[in-house]
Amino acid sequence: MNGDPVVRVRGLRTQFGDHVVHDGLDLDLRRGEILGVVGGSGTGKSVLLRAIVGLEACQGGTIEVLGKQIGTLSGPDRRALEQRWGVMFQDGALFSSLTVRENVEVPLKAVAGLSDAQRQGLAELKISMAGLPWKANGNYPSDLSGGMRKRAGLARALALDPEIVFLDEPTAGLDPIGASAFDKLIVTLRDALNLSVFLVTHDLDTLHACCDRVAVLAERKVLATGTMAQMLQVDHPWVHEYFHGPRARAATDGIPDKD
């Protein structure tokens, strides 16, 4: 089941004015894997995510998601594709005028033939799977803590049982306990739902705890991809510094090697 790429990026070029963010970037996300995308600030990790889901126009190259080329799709095809992926933005990006349950029900409204009770039940199931307590259902986003907002954002991203989930900095701003609970949650959901996960992060602990493969963005392209063990062998100075710095050592020490 694993192996075939669900996202294929080839020769991607994005730029804002004169500022080139990506040039000749190649990247694959395979079915059923969790791919961690890392890179320094300003290397365009979030831009890459936005380009793949079509929020950012690219100036060259091709992006294929589930076999469909982004940017060439007609309206209905594009909507059909959007229902096969979920995106969790950095701060959850919940609709502030809706409760958590209503937020998760928003994507479910596109499904014809669901009764109100079914929609509500499914939303409550997703909220519970994302690890939120029952009383969060009726809360508004402004009542929730940062970690809970991220979980609610994840619940909304998972509402339609997508094949691919894009997560933008899921553990940024969480305390270590909350962050490691979120790491476990991502792995659990991937195993249960056979998700492919595209995970933009800065968090070395997250990389160790959940990612099957890591892609390092630097110098406007993907500098290296591979497992964490392979990353430790790369001798590019930035990559070496990233995976061998004091924080990286601290992250590796606590966790037994996956391989």
Partner: peptide, 10 residues
Amino acid sequence: LVVWTLGKLS
């Protein structure tokens, strides 16, 4: 048996 076809069971 997915979310899109759930209505058929009603």
